[in-house]
């Protein structure tokens, strides 16, 4: 008899859910090991102050990572997010300086992000150009544009609105940085969407098998288009927080940020091939890398070594994942 016929169907969670549960469990164990190791070896590592600080730092890759993971799951990539971070700071700061209104500044930034997302999405989904190429292109164009516009000088935030500054150093109940709170809310909301909303499942289906998704009546192009917009808007939110931290719009803001995010997303088990992975995994990937680099710095290890170690961990994690998946499919 076949395997399936004996399983008691109704009560068990899906095989896939179990697989993911295990994958996320493995990441969670890694995170705990990292935390345990540095708690022992680094003084003051395991303090509320340090842990919440790291969470605050992690909030940018967490927020942008949601978009990155969503685009990956749809079977595409978006590497323009680092440049976007720098670009949207321009409308944000300029509008705030002119109008003294956070709302208008944020609105302008989001509108700008929306346009960039629509351009990325249109060129990929409707014009059929490879998304790596498209977003590589917009990445250079935006970075170049910021250099040209600023003449490589920072544009300071002259409005200095309290609400804006709070984004950088404010803490909820004096404990949790606001940026981390925003990241958690977005994670929960998008995590829910990916699991329980039809649109989230459509993203998985499109990334899992585009042709099958089309046969099921999905508008594949629209789904992808929307994913790029989600990614750009989330990167915009990250960019607003970053601008609050540095207190200006800068041409070097968010340099290499996209790679940091891609690394964490891949570490979190989100496959570049599409259709596989979860936001929980991505978040764990971000936290592992953030705590690792914080701990290594605590040990006094130079940044160069942190880079080398991060690289090795990513390759090892993906290789491990791949081996596991192959075993699951062969059995």
């Amino acid at each position: 008899m076949s395997l399936a016929s004996t399983a008691s169907a109704k009560t068990q969670p899906s095989t896939l859910a179990r697989l993911f549960a295990r994958q996320e469990l493995a990441l969670l164990v890694c995170l705990i090991l990292v935390l345990a190791f540095f708690s022992v070896t680094v003084e003051n590592f395991f303090s509320v102050r340090n842990l919440t600080n790291v969470l605050g730092q992690a909030s940018l890759p967490l927020i942008a990572g949601i978009g990155c993971a969503v685009v990956f799951i749809s079977g595409e990539v978006d590497i323009s997010i680092g440049s976007l971070l720098a670009t949207i700071a321009l409308p944000l700061i300029i509008i705030m300086n002119d109008t003294n209104s956070l709302l208008l500044g944020v609105g302008g930034a989001l509108l700008f992000g929306l346009i960039i997302g629509a351009v990325n999405g249109y060129l990929t989904a409707y014009a059929g150009i490879n998304s790596l190429i498209v977003t590589l292109g917009t990445m250079f164009i935006m970075r170049g544009g910021v250099y040209l516009y600023t003449g490589q000088r920072a544009i300071p935030d002259d409005a200095s609105l309290d609400s804006f500054i709070a984004l950088s150093d404010g803490r909820l109940f004096n404990i949790m940085p606001y940026s981390a709170v925003i990241a958690i809310i977005l994670l929960v909301a998008f995590g829910y969407m990916m699991r329980h909303r039809p649109f989230g499942r459509q993203i998985y289906a499109v990334g899992g098998n585009q042709e099958v998704a089309r046969l099921a009546g999905y508008d594949v192009r629209r789904v992808k288009f929307v994913c790029f917009i989600i990614s750009a808007l989330l990167a915009t939110v990250a960019g607003i927080i970053l601008a609050a931290r540095v207190g200006s719009a800068q041409h070097t803001a968010g340099l290499n940020f996209e790679f940091q995010v891609v690394a964490a997303t891949v570490l979190g088990g989100v496959s570049l091939a599409g259709g596989i992975g979860s936001l929980t995994g991505m978040a764990l990937g971000v936290l592992i890398l953030q705590f690792l680099s914080n701990g290594l710095r605590g040990l006094g290890l130079p940044t160069e070594w942190q880079l080398v170690i991060t690289g090795m961990i990513i390759i090892a994690a993906v290789a491990f994942d791949e081996a596991k998946r192959r075993r699951a499919n062969g059995g």
């Binding site: 899906s14 499942r201 099958v212 998704a213 099921a216």
Partner: peptide
């Protein structure tokens, strides 16, 4: 269809309702 058109990462139940959850 003649060639199987299912999302292999999804559960059987989800594939059945792919067209409309």
């Amino acid at each position: 269809f003649q060639e199987i058109a299912l999302i292999s990462e999804f559960t059987v139940a989800e594939n059945i309702f792919l067209e409309g959850y």
